[in-house]
Design a protein around this nucleic acid. Structure first.
Lengths: 232, 232
DNA sequence: TTTTTCAAAAATATCTACATTTTTAGGTAC
DNA sequence: GTACCTAAAAATGTAGATATTTTTGAAAAA
């Protein structure tokens, strides 16, 4: 049987669609999410719609105030800084564990995903290229993290990745569409792999921390320029 | 105005009540959560009830399978080990940051909450004593963690604490009701504070890691003895 | 006899339509 | 401008309709 284990219900469809709409900016930070228009857009009743919203609340992408409905969570430089601080420390810790505990097959999968990432070229349209690079970049970092061997740590890592997603999108365009920035990332990745394979866990930890905090400056500038930081 | 900001709706009441029922063992690991009986017990319709369940799913206390309803999440030695492994590493990392970044008021609040904890005595009933010690013990560790200064890291910490809660309950009775175990914990806490105040972050980190992994052995034994680990 | 198959019935989960409650907006008097 | 009342809009909740899964029991096969 190849059918999906579960998740074939309207709630999940609405959840996925709304999540994408929020991270892609169809709904912007601070926007009111009116039940009437959500019902129409996602073709679903209020009950299931509330359930989908409720999930996004627990992922911090939506905020809820009792009797006053739902809003897209605001964005701010403060939150950006905190998310990336937490994420960098977490990822650095996981990397240290991976270097200490990862076996040969871990090394192999890191190298394989790095190779796959390096082969993303301009053959596709710009937008496709962006999506492909993003997916493979995520896969590369996941491969590294999986060396830690702890499902719960990987889960925590994913919740932080989700929360960073809207900020990451701002950085992504800035990086992928700049030949210089892209080459700089390539070099960082090469260096990272070298240190990982050398099994120097302290150095790997520090390097990953740096790698993760790098984007903060760029993202701050974009937020300031576009005035995405909501004034509530 | 001192009224609650929000959360005065049926969904939240059912959520809180069911969460307590699960962590207190009214519903046991693996139990089917029948919509009909939940509706009756919490006096609520299926829509809101689903929403409450959905929140518990995102906290990993309940599992959902599409079209087949909800169950209390199972417990296992494997999960225990992983949760405590992840939690210990996270808490150790946060402690290291707290020692590096915490200011004088942080030191003061750590000492204050340690004092409050040390004054829990047998004047109350055994069950009250358990609850009081648990609350103050949690407050003590929270005071330490808050020194890290990152709301997101504290949030991650809380999600792990929630996931550990059912396992912690097993350890709690074992510890609070044993004079020896309680005295050992007191000694660990004294030592911990000493190291925190000495600002030796590496030592503080290691000590916190140890402090967090200690309970695993005891809890494993209790699970094995009571056969709480579901055979799925 | 025991096991397997299968269809109907029962139980359960999911969703919609509508009723109720609360908040927001608009207008009027002070 | 502020306070207050009323009408409209919106959120929340219930009851019941629909769809899916599980159980039951009888017939067929081993």
């Amino acid at each position: 049987m190849v059918t999906n284990e579960d998740k074939n219900n309207l709630v999940n469809l609405a959840y996925v669609a709304l999540k994408r709409d929020i991270t892609e900016g169809v709904y912007r930070p601070g926007d009111k999410l009116l039940m009437r228009s959500l019902k129409e857009r996602y073709e679903i009743g209020s009950g299931p719609m509330r359930e989908a919203l409720s999930r996004l609340v627990s992922e911090r992408l939506v905020t809820a105030i009792s009797q006053r409905g739902f809003r897209v969570a605001s964005m701010s430089i403060d939150e950006l800084t905190d998310i990336y601080f937490a994420r960098a420390h977490l990822e650095a810790m996981i990397t240290e564990l991976a270097v200490k505990l990862g076996d040969e097959s871990w090394e192999a999968s890191v190298i394989a995903s790095a190779h796959t990432l390096s082969r993303v070229t301009q053959v596709h349209s710009a937008e496709d290229m962006l999506g492909l690079w993003d997916a493979r970049h995520k896969a590369f970092h996941l491969a590294i993290a999986q060396g830690c061997g702890s499902p719960k740590l990987l889960e925590l890592r994913l919740t932080m990745l989700d929360q960073a997603e809207r900020y990451r999108q701002l950085w992504l365009r800035h990086t992928v569409f700049s030949a210089d920035a892209l080459e700089a990332k390539r070099e960082e990745h090469r260096h990272l792999i070298e240190v990982l394979l050398s099994r120097d866990h302290a150095k790997a930890r520090d390097l990953m921390f740096q790698h993760m905090t790098g984007p903060v400056t760029i993202i701050s500038e974009v937020i300031a320029a576009r005035d995405l930081a909501g004034d509530e």
